[in-house]
Amino acid sequence: MSTTEIRFSGFGGQGIIRCALITGEALALHDDKFATMTQSFGPEARGSACAAQLVVSDDRVLYPYITSPSVLMALSQEAYEKYYVELCDKGILIVDEDLVKLRGEHPNLVVWRVPATRFAEGLGNRLFTNLVALGFFTAVTGVVTADAMKKAIPGWVPSRFLKINIKAFEKGYDHGVQCMSGKSAS
């Protein structure tokens, strides 16, 4: 049984929890995996540090929490500093390159930088940051398929913003593919 533990983190309002909901639904409903999502629920979900966790497995997930995550998406400095230490060896760290300043090289991690907020602003609104980051995450981790993600997104974004959210996802995904084929992770 292979299990992957993922943490999405940032600050409240960035759509961190939505990232986990979309990925969880994509895996559980469209990629034939088992996925359990838990989230920050207190005041932290509304402004300060915020995180959502996903346990993904080929079999039913019993223990619902993450203990040794292999993927961390951090969209704020605070989230990065709080959570990177718990990543397992060779774990994947994805950060917004304009918002997070790395504390060193992290030779034991696979580090990816994505200008998610900048790309989102280019698309007209930084509200789409999470979808850009999610597209990038999909490309570089391979945990979930892009098809499954695109099937899951409509249930979690307002229909009038669906097209632009898909566009944001694709922007991040294409950038991820490019990074993968160009240079390897920095």
Binding site: F34, T36, T38, V61
Partner: peptide, 10 residues
């Protein structure tokens, strides 16, 4: 409980 109440699964 809060955990099951707020936990998302299929």
């Amino acid at each position: 409980d809060e955990t099951v109440g707020h936990m998302h699964e299929k």
